[in-house]
Design a protein around this nucleic acid. Structure first.
Lengths: 133, 133
DNA sequence: CAATTACATTCAAGGAGTTGAATGTAATGA
DNA sequence: TCATTACATTCAACTCCTTGAATGTAATTG
């Protein structure tokens, strides 16, 4: 009550600062479907590797992401689950695809996770093409 | 899908930028309980008038607030209702008082709205004025 | 119309965020 | 150990945000 309002909302403002960038929102949109390695984000989003690392560092230092090493690759995942609620809340200003999380990203990179998905005979692209109305 | 991710999330990032400031979050916290005039915000938050106007302008231009003139006073209110959901979502990093919206701010200013609330009992200022000498 | 009230806008200096380029590092394999 | 892979960090130029100070403006009162 008597405390400085600027102090009281400092932590919350820091969280919003981390979200106040289109590249970081795009990253979170991909990671909504589960953890991904950096090379996958690079392929899907079309960002340069160093640029991506910088934005991932901001989200990591804000406590939104955590990373996990597995051999050569480092996988990032969302650990602050309330960002899902936040993104849901502003769905009126988000692109439509962000609101439906049922469409899986097509395979576009050479990371182990992508190769595992690829191994079944049909590629996702071919499958979608065959099953379109 | 093929569009630039930076473009797709530009609008959402703009919204978060407006929220990424402790003073603006403090303003929204007060306006949660209903519209208030600038002089009331000034008294409750302890900000200078010009500073307050600047922050209100940011929130207004982001489409979060709308203003309404009534005589001398200008009343601001929240028109983007999803900011309530956003603030609820990050309640883990918000001060406790923000999470309980049952405590009304005490009267601290001379705007018409505050004077209406004050009318039942004797106002301290009016009381002092009447009983001087 | 002049003065007052309540609020808005402009300006400028300083600070913080952005981003390309270059470089550093841990893990793996030969 | 040396090369490679996948990713991180640093640096610098640039842009954008922040904020105090000064000034402007619409509504009201006398």
């Amino acid at each position: 009550m008597t405390s400085d309002p600027l102090d009281r909302f400092q932590t919350a403002a820091q969280l919003f600062k981390a979200l106040a960038h289109p590249a970081r929102l795009a990253i979170l949109d991909v990671l909504r479907q589960g953890e991904e390695c950096v090379c996958h984000l690079e392929a899907v989003l079309g960002f340069r590797q160093a640029y991506l690392s910088q934005q991932l560092a901001v989200l990591r230092e804000a406590g939104i992401l955590q990373d996990r090493r597995e051999g050569w690759n480092i996988y990032y995942r969302i650990v602050r689950k309330d960002v899902f609620e936040i993104l849901d809340a502003i769905r009126t200003v988000l692109p439509e695809q962000v609101q439906r999380d049922d469409l899986a990203e097509p395979h576009e990179c050479d990371c182990p996770k992508c190769r595992r998905k690829e191994s079944p005979a049909a590629s996702s692209k071919a499958f979608l093409a065959l099953n379109r109305d």
